[in-house]
């Protein structure tokens, strides 16, 4: 198991944003966490990447306890984070943005190869190498951030709402790229998403999170008809247990 989030509870002040959440990600898997606004999805990701610390529970990454480790060191461990809202470095140009991704690495030849791979995967980035990243369109910025994360050679990439504020066509393209990455280089992905439909299509396994608790976990293939997910997502049924595979 690559990542094991074990029973974490995270507080903002006195408010518990996430309660007893457990998520596991195996090597080469795409796992999605879906849920409505304020469900605690981003909080879970921020806790994994070390920006927040859980009040209870542990985060283990490839058998090392990384709970409460600072973000730089988590990144160095091989968890690359794509934060919500396309955080490009606006005044740096596209190439410099990508170079930031390689700054933790020393293997020059490999870096060049990965660089070419990213440019090949996102040709538009190559065309706009010298443009300030702030001038790119939303979709291009999302590509840039994913490219930057890739250049760190992550063992796990976490992505927060890749579809946020993008046209449906661009979202399709983003997901195409993500699945392609898994198939081509065996990248492990943990994706947080509001739109459950998209997540069901791309993921191997999904977790539905609402009000800070896991409502439903399961293989995407089993849940593909969407009914159970919808119920868990919107909370139509009461008394759903979070430990059980499907508790209703």
């Amino acid at each position: 198991m690559l990542l094991k989030v074990d029973n974490i509870t995270v507080h903002y002040g006195r408010l518990a944003a996430v309660r007893n959440v457990s998520v596991e990600v195996n090597e080469g898997e795409i796992v999605c966490i879906v849920g409505p606004n304020g469900a605690g999805k981003s909080t879970t990701l921020l806790t994994i990447s070390g920006i927040l610390s859980p009040t209870e529970g542990t985060v283990t990454f490839s058998d090392r306890n990384i709970t409460g480790m600072n973000p730089e060191n988590v990144a160095r461990m091989g968890i690359s984070q794509v934060p919500e809202g396309r955080h490009v470095f606006t005044s740096l140009n596209v190439e410099e943005n990508l170079r930031i991704g390689t700054r933790m690495r020393r293997d020059r030849a490999e870096i060049e190869r990965d660089f070419q791979m990213v440019l090949e995967m996102f040709p538009v980035l190559g065309e706009r190498k010298r443009q300030p990243a702030g001038k790119l369109s939303g979709g291009e910025q999302q590509m840039l951030v994913i490219g930057r994360a890739l250049l760190t050679r992550p063992r796990l990439m976490t992505i927060d709402e890749p579809s946020l504020g993008l046209a449906p066509k661009i979202v399709d393209r983003v997901y195409e790229v993500l699945t392609d990455l898994r198939n081509r280089i065996g990248l492990t992905l943990l994706i947080v998403e509001q739109s459950s439909e998209r997540a069901l299509k791309a993921a191997d396994r999904i977790h539905v999170l609402r009000s800070g608790q896991i409502q439903l976990s399961g293989n995407a293939a089993d849940l593909r008809d969407g009914e159970k997910v919808k119920q868990a997502y919107f909370g139509f049924t009461e008394g759903v247990k979070h430990e059980g595979e499907v508790a209703f």
Partner: peptide
């Protein structure tokens, strides 16, 4: 240099630069 770039990245976006492994 990579150091200057890292500093500028932290200037543009502190959270994202940390996530990219920059020691701000």
């Amino acid at each position: 240099s990579r150091y200057g770039l890292s500093a500028k990245a932290s200037r543009d976006d502190e959270v994202a630069s940390k996530a990219a492994g920059v020691n701000v």
